[in-house]
């Protein structure tokens, strides 16, 4: 994968498959670092599952025998001097279950890859899971870009968020927010 935004998409898909209804994606760029955090209220993982996450031969899926999402992300983060930290509470343990994935990347490291198209990532996520409340926040030194599906839903009521016209609006809205930042 040659864009960080694809890693964000891949990691967030884990939250979707964990049955989460609330997923927040936060990117924070400060100094030499880019941190992203994906947190969800999905079913969570057991301690054993969390421990085995970096093992590529561990996966819960049944269609193939390897799980490369987390190992890929960890490799990239560590190559740039960063890290990946995952904490999770399984639904059998507490009512407040869910998973938080934090990844840190050294932005100026030679092995850092471009962030790429976060707008497409957000659109793909909403297209595939129109009922999930995604919250997107990208903090940069020039200012923030944000989107809240819950807020959009208040306006849209029963019109699904993945209608093409709505997705186009979401894309344009984010694009204009990014443009405003770049002009500062």
């Amino acid at each position: 994968m040659d864009e960080l935004s694809l890693y964000v998409l891949d990691i967030t898909m884990n939250s979707v498959r964990a049955g989460a209804t609330e997923i927040s994606i936060t990117l924070c760029e400060e100094g030499d670092w880019l941190d992203f955090t994906v947190s969800d209220n999905g079913c969570g993982m057991t301690e054993e599952q969390v421990q085995r996450l970096s093992d590529p031969f561990f996966t819960t899926r049944k269609t193939r025998k390897v799980g490369l999402g987390i190992p890929f992300l960890t490799m990239l983060a560590e190559m740039t001097g960063g890290y990946v930290r995952i904490t999770s509470v399984h639904e059998s343990v507490s009512e407040k279950h869910g998973t938080v994935t934090c990844a840190r990347f050294g932005k100026n490291h030679i092995d850092f890859i471009p962030l790429g198209d976060m707008i497409e990532t957000v659109k793909v996520l909403i297209q595939g899971s129109p009922n999930v409340n995604f919250t997107y926040l990208h903090q940069t030194e020039a200012g923030n870009v944000s989107l809240s599906c819950a807020e959009l839903r208040e306006i849209l009521e029963d019109v699904p968020l993945n209608e093409p016209e709505i997705l186009a609006w979401i894309g344009d809205n984010l694009r204009e927010q990014y443009l405003a930042l770049s002009q500062k």
């Binding site: 694809l6 998409l9 891949d10 898909m13 193939r64 490369l68 999402g69």
Partner: peptide, 8 residues
């Protein structure tokens, strides 16, 4: 298909 393999 939008799993890790598809995305990559």
């Amino acid at each position: 298909g939008m799993a890790t393999c598809g995305i990559a």
